[in-house]
Structure formats: C-alpha cells, structure tokens
Design a protein around this nucleic acid. Sequence first.
DNA 1: CAGTGGTCTAGACCACGAC
DNA 2: TCGTGGTCTAGACCACTGT
Lengths: 257, 257
Amino acid sequence: MLRPLDPTSDRSRYRQIADHLREAINAGEIAPGEQLPSERELMEQYDAARGTARQAISLLRSEGLIETEHGRGAFVRKRPAVRRVAHDRFLRRHRQAGNAAYLAEMETAGRTPEVEILEVGRAPAPADAAERLELEESASVLVRRRRYLADGFPMELATSYVPWSIAEGTQMTEANTGPGGIYARIEERGHQLERFAEEVTARMPSPEEAKALRLMPGVPVIGVVRTAYDSEGRPVEVCDTVMAADRYVLTYELPAR
Amino acid sequence: MLRPLDPTSDRSRYRQIADHLREAINAGEIAPGEQLPSERELMEQYDAARGTARQAISLLRSEGLIETEHGRGAFVRKRPAVRRVAHDRFLRRHRQAGNAAYLAEMETAGRTPEVEILEVGRAPAPADAAERLELEESASVLVRRRRYLADGFPMELATSYVPWSIAEGTQMTEANTGPGGIYARIEERGHQLERFAEEVTARMPSPEEAKALRLMPGVPVIGVVRTAYDSEGRPVEVCDTVMAADRYVLTYELPAR
DNA sequence: CAGTGGTCTAGACCACGAC
DNA sequence: TCGTGGTCTAGACCACTGT
C-alpha cells in the first residue's frame, strides 16, 4: 500500500497510482463500499500533483471499478442487485404482458416496482422502427415510451412502436393498455403472436440516457430491440429497450436441434 | 460552430464545449472519420485553458463518440463492421462447431478470420465454472482459451471448460480438436447435446481485456456465458466469451408459445 | 521540422456533505 | 467549519505523426 512509484518505469505516474489502487481493490484491501484515499492523501503518498491523483481516480472510474461522490469521497463500487431477464418471458402461459409482468416479477423478487408512462401518442415512425415494421418511412405509428424502476431506482427505458393501423381505436393508445397489455390488444385485433426476434447490443449511454437511468460514469447500457411477429410472419410491434448494464443479466435458451 | 460559451449557465465550461462538439457531430458537421479541432484550437475558440479543452475531449471519448490518436488528433468514430451472432448457430444442421464455424462464417462475410489458441490444458475449475458444471469446486477440467480475429482485428476472447472426465483421452485436449470441434467429441463420448443456456451481460473491460481486444477507451464488452446440456440434463461444457461490444450484435429468437 | 495529443506541476476557487 | 471532489488556469516538457 505504501509502495512508492517507480521512476524508471515507462508507465505514467497516474497509471502506476491507478495500478496500486486497483490491486488493493482486487485483493480486497479496500472492500466494496469502502472509501479510497482522498486526492490530497494520494498527492502526499505519491508526491504527485493533484491533477495526477485525479487522473488515476478518473481512470478507475472509467473502468467502472469505483464511483465518486462530490463532497464525500471515492468508493469501491458495490455490485447492485440485478434483474435476470428470462428467455421465456413471452411464452403465452406466462403472459401477463408488459407492465403487469414487470410489476409481478419485481414484487416476487421483494422489490418495489414502478412504471412511468413518459409518452403515448401517434407519430411518424423513426427510420429503424419503420424498417423493422416493414412500413414506409414516416408511416404513422403508435409510440409508447416508459421508464421502469425498482426500489425507486431506474432500471430501463423502453419505447414501443405499433403500426397505427393496428393500434387505432384500441386501448393501446391510452396510458392504461388494459388487461394483458398491448400484446393482448394486438391479438384481439386478429394478429396471433407467433415469435419474437431480439437484437442485443451494448454501448456507452448518451448523456440523456445516463441521466434518465441515473448511471454512474463507466456503466454501459444494454440495448435490446425486440420485434414481435404474428402467425403470418408480419411484424406487429417493435420495442426498443435501453437497460442499465450493471442491473441486468439476460438469459436465453437455444435448442441444439 | 463559433458560438461562445454562456458564462451565466451553471453548466461547466468543459461540458458546454463538449455539448457544442457533440451537436456538431450529431448534425454531421463533423462526419465520421473527420478530425475535431485540436486542443490548442479549442483553447483559442473558447478562450479556455488547455486542461478545460482536454476535459471536453475526454468526456466525448468516454461517451464513445470520438477517439484520439497521439500525435495525429481527435476523430469522430466510425462504426466498425459488426458480426451478427445468430440464435440458431448451434443447431445441429448448422453445426460445424466452434472454430470451424467461425472461420466459415467470416469467410462468407468476406473477412479474413483467424483463431489463436492461447491455452489448452488441465486445471482446477474456477468457482463459477464449477458451479455451472455442477462439479465440486476445483474439480479437474479441460481449459481451452482462444482469441478470435477478423481482418487482423480482435473480435472476442473465449474460454471453454469441460469436465475432465469427459475430455480425458479425446482430441479435445489437443490444440486441434478435430472435425466438428469439441461438441462432436463430446457427443462421441455419449453425451447427446440437447440445449444451450446463455447469460448475457455488459460491462467495461478490464485493462487486460482492453488490451487483448484492442478496445478504444469508452467501448464496453459483452459477456456471454454459455452452458451446454446433454439429453439427460447434465451440463457438459461452459464457454465464457468476452466480445468487443462495438463489433457485435447478438440475435435471439423467442417463441410466443 | 511543426503540430498533435499525453503527462505533469502548482496553484486557485467553488460546491457539496457531514459534523 | 472542515474535508471532500469538481472546475479552471497557465504554464512546462515529452512522445508521436507527418512533411
């Protein structure tokens, strides 16, 4: 812990400081939730300028190892409770769709769920949603944006797009979609749901996403774009989800034959 | 582009500079691959100290929007070619397992694939692999580590664990696993493969992973842990994969019933 | 060589949190 | 009030890239 920096190393001073701290964290010498030495203490210990100590801290933060709190200090990050999203969540026998499913699932996990409806309305389809729905660009769609929380903490942002021809006149177009959620409404319109295709990516959040999900710096997001198809192979809904990566594990099941 | 900073704003100067640049990038005024103003130019334009200009640049880099090259400048990031990983890649009719599958898939995509075998040997199972394989902790397993590349660029790191009782005496324990890869060898040992379970997460890379995958700062990794089960429900292999998130889209298919 | 980003120093003042 | 991190300045020297 009190090792000095190696002036002969070609590794920069701030990297060496970060290395020391990282080792201490990985060795458990600074446990999750515990506080790191303050920037002024690091200046003293390593005889470095404050900027150099800050660079070391900043590096560890970008690695997602620590988080800083203004006026309090820097702390080793604790792994927060994660939500496991199961591959079979859309099977009809489980279906209790959308919001209701989320609420029930979190309740049984002993957490307090909350769903905020951010936007419900008719709008021209964004290019990628139009493509997935096999619509003309800027064809009219129902847009539903919402934010899911657990214990007051944001978990994911989701935006659904449904062709207006399917959504029109149904309870989908209202804040409360009714029993069974939008999938039930879609089936009532004669589109029996057959399968879902999901595309999974990961990236750093935009500033807006970081704010809406209250992400600490260094936490990526998982993007899932799900397209629902009816029994005739027509796409009937696209749902674009952005999840806080430190709060999710997605599980899938693949047949071998 | 030549807007001055707003001194009345409570947004910090470096954030305002970053905002300006981000808008210019999103508006296409600075196209992908194009160079941003140099730090000294930003100092001039905004009448700021160099450290302030650097903080703005650093913020955009941590967002994954730009990358910097020592001695050259800062550039808007181009989206690299991605590999789409399909949900049905383990169906027996497609199977041409592991490395062979990767090689064939990349060839047809017009890219030059490469597989490096980093380690093949017998070792005690790490805790999480042992748990997934339903083995005693530190039971003996075959460990196979490799790195996959495309056009000379690293794509993913993968480590497979197979119970030693299954691997022993087979070609799995050698660098070249033989036709059909390790899944073929496992089936020859009487374990018919039935299904695969995948767990997907995303996080920032460790320094070692960043190096091995040649990741630019601000690029997360996707972690996939796949467990293969035989027809009697016994786990026969665990494969832990770490992918460069900017080079992958995973696709899955979910039945509705 | 000139121009770029990378590292580092030694200060300063501010905003926030806990006591 | 004091200690924390957040922002900012005005320098310096170095390493790398391209001409």
